[in-house]
Amino acid sequence: MAFDSHLPELELFIEKADKLENSGFVKKIKEEFTLDISIDLTREDPLNIRSIRPNQENIDAFILTFRFFIQDNEATSIRNLQKFFDSEFVTIEEKSKFNAARSNLNSFLSESTNLTFKDENISNQMLMDTFIYGGLSHAKKSKKEKFDLWMSRDDAQEFFWHKFSIVIFTVLQLIQYIKNMLLTVIARNKNA
């Protein structure tokens, strides 16, 4: 198979990665992203939570594009890119770096968020999937029920939104890393 046959999916990956990098979500994360918690026992409601994060419109727009990288029905999904990185168009070092990046991503997603709800320890993957497929872009029944349960607690909502933002921003960093690898691979193979 000729290298040119891979170009559309690789260029789409780069285009969508650029779109995420220039999104309002990323701008807000970089400008000001905080979660402050204070407890004042002299007040009737002692817990005070102040959160500055991307607004709902920023998050929704980001997720619409972000799904290109996490859904296996997309040629641009990180999992589907494995086929390209197994091809003769990448060096052994590039393949190794890609495999290490995917492994690091999977390890990160399996880690705990350090959030628990009703005695359930929540992993980064569970948090991301529940938000995306239960609250933001789909409504799979079990994930929707879990998302609604998490959001039913006013004192917990901002913790979940804050951690979700961190998780998807961390995944974006891997997407940016892969994009930069693809730019190198494309430049080398176009000149070959």
Rank of each mutant, 00 (worst) to 15 (best):
M1L: 09
M1N: 13
H6G: 05
H6R: 11
L7R: 11
P8E: 05
E9G: 07
L10E: 07
L12K: 15
E15D: 12
E15T: 13
E15N: 13
A17G: 08
D18T: 08
E21S: 15
N22H: 11
N22K: 15
G24N: 09
V26T: 07
V26L: 06
E31T: 08
T34W: 08
T34A: 07
L35I: 01
D36I: 02
S38G: 07
T42F: 01
R43A: 09
E44M: 06
P46I: 00
N48A: 10
I52W: 04
I52L: 15
R53N: 07
E57H: 13
I59S: 06
A61W: 04
A61V: 02
I63E: 06
L64M: 10
T65M: 08
T65G: 08
T65D: 14
R67T: 04
R67S: 07
F68T: 00
F68K: 09
F69Q: 09
F69K: 09
Q71V: 01
E74P: 03
A75L: 15
S77R: 10
I78N: 11
I78P: 10
R79P: 00
N80E: 10
L81N: 07
L81A: 03
K83C: 00
F84K: 04
F85A: 02
D86R: 09
E88I: 09
E88G: 13
E88N: 14
F89M: 05
V90R: 03
T91S: 14
I92D: 09
E93Q: 12
E94T: 02
K95V: 03
K95I: 05
K97S: 09
N99C: 08
N99Y: 00
A101Y: 00
R102C: 13
S103T: 09
S103N: 12
L105A: 03
L105Y: 03
L105G: 01
N106S: 10
N106H: 06
S107D: 14
S107K: 15
L109C: 04
L109I: 01
S112K: 08
S112N: 08
N114G: 07
T116E: 13
K118T: 06
K118M: 12
D119A: 12
E120N: 14
E120G: 02
N121K: 14
S123K: 06
N124Q: 05
M126E: 11
M128C: 11
I132T: 07
G135S: 04
S137Q: 11
A139Q: 11
S142I: 05
K143W: 10
K144Y: 13
K146T: 03
K146D: 00
D148Y: 00
D148C: 03
L149V: 03
L149E: 15
W150M: 04
A156T: 00
E158H: 14
E158F: 12
F159N: 12
F159G: 10
F160R: 06
I166H: 07
F169L: 07
Q173W: 01
I175D: 06
Q176Y: 00
Q176I: 11
I178H: 02
L182E: 00
T184P: 00
T184C: 04
V185P: 04
V185Y: 03
I186A: 06
N189Q: 08
K190Q: 12
N191G: 05
A192H: 10
